[in-house]
Computed example of a mutant assay.
Amino acid sequence: MADQDSESLPQLFNRAEIQMEKLEDSERSPESISALIKQFETATKFVSILGLFSRNESADEISTADLRYLLLPAYLARLTLKLTDGRKARLDAAEIYIVDYLQRCKDYGVPGSNAIPDKDLKISIQENGSSDTDAVQTSTVKSPQDQIAEAVNKRAAKIAAFKHKLESKEKAAALRKKLEDGSADENEQRGYYYNLFNMWILDLMEELDFVREEKRLLEHREKLSRGASEDEQQPVQSPMSKTLSKFNKPVTIVKNELQKQVFGAGYPSLPLLTVDEFYQELVQEGALPAPGSKAAKNLNYMGPTQAELESDDVKKEQDVESDNPEYLRNARDYDDWKDDHRRGWGNRIGQG
């Protein structure tokens, strides 16, 4: 296993992705799956610290080299579902990862994301740890004719999705061959990732239904168990179960404390960490060197201090509020530069 301290984000992601492909073709132990989850979680932290994505941009504005990192929550969802210990917590985490991936695809306008229904973007976890999946079942009773029509529509939608997935798989396989032999231009590279995103959208939409159905079954069984032993006290949580619950929580990162308060509403009962908190966690885990240390100097990397980060934020806010002429001029010049330097103009290989 490579030393993660000296690995860059592309190296870490490539290594984990290769292991992910091997995992799909064979049975692996829970320990190896957990280790792979840890690698993808570390990659997720790196992506957030580097600030590669912004909800204000579309998929076409994301660098071709960075597109693949949109798959991180999809990979984490698939791996999390392969683990059976603490199943309810695993299902909760997988649901959050799936919804996170689908929401990102929709936010960035990934081709095929229009097929994602809004109902799939709601996380069924309440603050008390229970889910609101039962509320889905309390809908108005439908007539037999409506039920038949709904079943026919669902069947037709599944057949269409299956055909679409096969087409995307064939296109992705053909484009991957070009990527591997180095003959793919930038448009073909982006086309490969878009087909890959589409395949994962169709797969995870289907898995999300299974996840929520399994959660309903587990909750129903738990209610029956509580009803059978009404007078019994709730069992005390063991240290092992507490440890499991700690590692079952998804990696959700926000930029600062203000976003932490705002976006926390989207992941109720799950604590969020800011980028600074995640950075300190990476330092403690040994995934990143401490700012100013000898290891950081050897890597030509000096982590910004909290004071520097706060100073930059304050200066930017002051420039915006005071309409600083230099700040505005730089912003306009950058917009003009983007107008004259369209995406892909610098790479004309294979385009005639």
Results as ranks from 00 to 15, higher is better:
residue 316 K to L: 06
residue 324 N to M: 06
residue 317 E to H: 12
residue 289 P to E: 03
residue 298 N to R: 08
residue 288 L to V: 14
residue 300 N to F: 00
residue 322 S to L: 12
residue 286 G to P: 06
residue 329 R to L: 14
residue 311 S to P: 03
residue 302 M to Y: 00
residue 332 R to M: 11
residue 299 L to M: 00
residue 329 R to C: 11
residue 296 A to I: 02
residue 307 A to M: 06
residue 285 E to K: 15
residue 295 A to V: 07
residue 328 L to T: 14
residue 326 E to F: 15
residue 332 R to I: 14
residue 306 Q to K: 11
residue 316 K to M: 04
residue 320 V to L: 10
residue 336 D to Q: 13
residue 313 D to L: 08
residue 283 V to E: 09
residue 300 N to Q: 00
residue 291 P to N: 11
residue 327 Y to V: 05
residue 287 A to W: 06
residue 325 P to Y: 11
residue 337 W to V: 05
residue 333 D to K: 13
residue 327 Y to H: 13
residue 292 G to H: 02
residue 293 S to E: 03
residue 295 A to T: 11
residue 314 V to Q: 11
residue 295 A to D: 09
residue 301 Y to N: 02
residue 305 T to I: 02
residue 336 D to P: 03
residue 306 Q to D: 08
residue 316 K to F: 01
residue 285 E to R: 13
residue 290 A to N: 07
residue 293 S to F: 05
residue 305 T to W: 06
residue 338 K to C: 13
residue 332 R to F: 05
residue 293 S to Q: 03
residue 307 A to Y: 01
residue 322 S to R: 14
residue 338 K to Q: 13
residue 296 A to V: 01
residue 322 S to I: 03
residue 329 R to V: 10
residue 312 D to L: 15
residue 294 K to E: 11
residue 336 D to N: 13
residue 298 N to K: 08
residue 302 M to L: 01
residue 292 G to E: 01
residue 328 L to Y: 08
residue 336 D to H: 11
residue 307 A to V: 05
residue 296 A to N: 05
residue 322 S to C: 06
residue 334 Y to W: 09
residue 326 E to I: 15
residue 319 D to Y: 12
residue 286 G to E: 07
residue 295 A to N: 07
residue 336 D to I: 15
residue 306 Q to F: 08
residue 297 K to S: 09
residue 313 D to T: 12
residue 324 N to T: 10
residue 331 A to M: 15
residue 301 Y to G: 01
residue 308 E to Y: 07
residue 300 N to L: 04
residue 333 D to R: 13
residue 304 P to D: 06
residue 337 W to M: 13
residue 310 E to V: 05
residue 307 A to C: 03
residue 335 D to Y: 10
residue 327 Y to F: 14
residue 313 D to C: 06
residue 295 A to G: 12
residue 314 V to A: 11
residue 336 D to L: 15
residue 300 N to H: 04
residue 287 A to M: 08
residue 310 E to Y: 00
residue 309 L to A: 05
residue 294 K to F: 02
residue 333 D to E: 14
residue 308 E to Q: 10
residue 315 K to T: 14
residue 309 L to Q: 08
residue 310 E to H: 05
residue 301 Y to C: 04
residue 324 N to W: 05
residue 305 T to N: 01
residue 293 S to G: 07
residue 322 S to Q: 12
residue 315 K to V: 07
residue 290 A to E: 03
residue 288 L to R: 15
residue 317 E to L: 12
residue 312 D to V: 11
residue 326 E to R: 15
residue 311 S to M: 08
residue 292 G to V: 01
residue 297 K to H: 00
residue 318 Q to R: 11
residue 283 V to G: 07
residue 319 D to G: 08
